[in-house]
């Protein structure tokens, strides 16, 4: 049997909102250690890697490893039926055809059950090696979301250049161009407002706005986002999910023709 309970559905609701633009379906790998998802978008340009540790759940039981193929659109619809304060329980039996979502209101007076059919999926797991990146930037997630949104008006791609001085985002298009520079924070009053750059060597990479704007849907999950970059390799954009896990997005860079 598999059973995982969160005291508040808000986290799971936010996770679904953070992946629904990129994924139509995904396999949820459930084991003793927790729930993991690794899935590419249809175009194979980006990859979502989600990790929710079992010790972050209020209750977690997984008698045997399960791979459950889920339709993300349906799952999002179901999670939207839960109030943020509802307790959410995921339940499946061994060799399941279905997964059950159970929402219980705080006063325990309303109990909702939604059963979703699982789907068979071909899995294509990418082996992503541990990488030391040339630049690792931590910055406010809302600021990153704002920059992606603002610059998307000017072009289809954003160039990110990172040096010791700071991080510069540039977009150029038919109607003009725009660039936004953020300096490393000298002294941040609040940790979540800091811009921190850990640089081994400068990096300049170009990425499609469309995907960056999908990644920033994870903004409600965490006050800070971590961007890891090296020359000519995919960007890693990471959001912590409370003390339960993280979501990482990988995005292949655009390369000059």
């Amino acid at each position: 049997m598999f059973e995982a309970r969160l005291a508040q559905s808000a986290i799971l609701k936010k996770v679904l909102e953070a992946v629904k633009d990129l994924l139509t379906e995904a396999t949820f790998e459930c084991s003793d250690s927790g729930i993991q998802v690794q899935a590419m978008d249809n175009a194979h340009v980006s990859l979502v890697s989600l990790n929710l540790r079992s010790d972050g759940f209020d209750k977690y039981r997984c008698d045997r490893n399960l791979s459950m193929g889920m339709n993300i659109g349906t799952m999002t619809k179901i999670l939207r039926c839960a109030s943020s304060e509802d307790t959410v329980t995921l339940r499946a039996w061994d060799n399941p055809d279905n997964i059950i979502f159970i929402f219980e209101s705080q006063n325990k007076e309303k109990l909702s059950e939604y059963e979703m059919k699982l789907i068979n999926m071909d899995q294509e797991h990418l082996g992503i090696p541990e990488t030391v990146y040339s630049c690792v930037v931590k910055m406010p997630s809302q600021e990153f979301a704002r920059i992606c949104k603002d610059l998307s008006q000017f072009g289809e791609a954003i160039t990110i250049a990172c040096s010791k001085e700071g991080i510069k985002f540039t977009a150029a298009g038919d109607y003009g161009n725009a660039n936004i520079k953020l300096a490393q924070t000298a002294e941040a009053d609040k940790e979540e407002e800091a811009v921190i750059i850990d640089m081994q060597e400068p990096v300049k990479l170009t990425f499609a706005c469309r995907y960056l704007n999908s990644f920033v849907k994870a903004t409600p999950l965490c006050a800070q986002v971590k961007l890891s970059m090296s020359g000519d390799v995919p960007l890693v954009c990471e959001y912590q999910i409370g003390d339960i896990g993280h979501i990482r997005y990988y995005l292949a860079p655009k390369i000059d023709d």
Binding site: G127, P234, P253, I255
Partner: peptide, 14 residues
């Protein structure tokens, strides 16, 4: 114009 890469050019299927 820069060309969009495929993620599978960077990572192999495990």
């Amino acid at each position: 114009t820069p060309v969009q890469n495929d993620l599978q050019e960077f990572y192999t299927i495990a």
